[in-house]
Design a protein around this nucleic acid. Structure first.
Lengths: 205, 205
DNA sequence: CATACAAATAACTAACTAGTTAGTTTATTA
DNA sequence: TAATAAACTAACTAGTTAGTTATTTGTATG
């Protein structure tokens, strides 16, 4: 087996970079640290990725790409509108819970005024997803399962942000309530509550 | 008038630091830049604040303190539970909208794993606020205005995060929807929608 | 097995950055 | 008005950091 494998080296550096950038952001991350933690020389990073900024953009591209694929799979499933929306809420909650790297990189980008994300295909990748969500809701309205006066865009904004923000504000929320919001039970309870709230607003009685 | 005024100098440096830290975080901010933008020598920063980190903590203390005072005022008002909760939602939305500095510093702190915020009195300042909110809801439940099966903590989490996250995810949300979410009309619409949603879940019909 | 080339590295550089210091300017007051 | 203290500054230091270069090491192939 080749101890020298450009493909594998590249991948290994990228994975280390994902961890580092998610944890410390583009300014807090040190290229030397990525080199050391990945086990490769700093020169390799520049050989394979060009610059710190380019590496960061590839990190964004990779992490957001993986998310978009997972989201697409949920949206592609053949389901009744109610179950479809329910599974989508469930997906957002679980994904944010088990992918802190994704949550953090989104936060960093918002703080960077979207400077780096604008240079990836993030928007292009998500637009059709959003349109598809809209269609699911509209079909639920047609079938009478969903209230007809629901504003699709407003509802989706809430459905996306309610699960996400529980994890993106982890530390300040814990401080506010003074209790552990991320125990197994708390997580189950929150997920139930968010789902119930969104469905109560959406469903016809 | 004294051109040399320690109090005023301190204040001026602090205000500049608030802007810089909110914009660039503790790692992205340069002490030299704060000095230059405030118009004072870097030595003054170290004379009055000790270190970059101590200055940052004082920034957090100041900004979160101002927020806590404003929140307290809303909570102290004598109102019927329905109007009281409505005014609270309104406050959260308006405050996040007009204080990007506050929004950003909260985001930075969540990304810093709450390291610096833990060394301010943020938690202590907010705990009684949270308890007071709980009381408002409970009194609404007693009077029959609010549903009796509402989980107070779950509801408050949603009431705090729904307004906030619309602003904390400004750039990625805009990318997702592809429209300007922060025009005058969009803001009014979002605020209405969030308020309506929360009240629908909370109020007895 | 020699050679050619890709993979990898150590050591370096130029620019930057938090923090310090030695000294100057201004206001106060005895 | 001379002495004193506080406000302020310019220039420096020690350490860091993104990025480069000269060189070595491993591997596939004719």
């Amino acid at each position: 087996m080749a101890r020298r494998d450009a493909q594998k080296t590249r991948e290994c550096i990228l994975n280390t970079a994902i961890q580092e950038f998610a944890e410390k952001g583009i300014h807090g991350t040190r290229v030397d640290e990525i080199a050391q933690r990945s086990g490769y020389n700093k020169g390799m990073i520049y050989a394979y990725f060009g610059s710190k900024e380019d590496l960061y953009k590839e990190v964004l591209h990779t992490v957001f790409g993986v998310f978009a694929d997972a989201e697409r799979e949920v949206l592609m499933a053949e389901r009744e509108p109610v179950q479809h929306i329910e599974s989508l809420i469930c997906f957002y909650f679980d994904y944010a819970q088990s992918n802190p790297v994704y949550v953090n990189l989104l936060l960093w980008e918002n703080l960077n005024n979207g400077v780096y994300i604008n240079e990836t295909d993030y928007g292009i990748a998500r637009k059709p997803s959003f349109d598809q969500m809209s269609e699911i809701i509209q079909s639920g309205q047609v079938s009478g399962a969903f209230k007809s006066d629901i504003d699709v865009q407003q509802f989706l904004l809430s459905a996306i942000m309610l699960p996400f923000s529980y994890f993106s504000n982890k530390y300040t929320l814990s401080k506010l309530l003074g209790t552990d919001l991320y125990s197994e039970e708390s997580l189950v309870e929150r997920k139930k509550s968010v789902t119930a709230m969104l469905l109560e607003v959406l469903l016809n009685k």
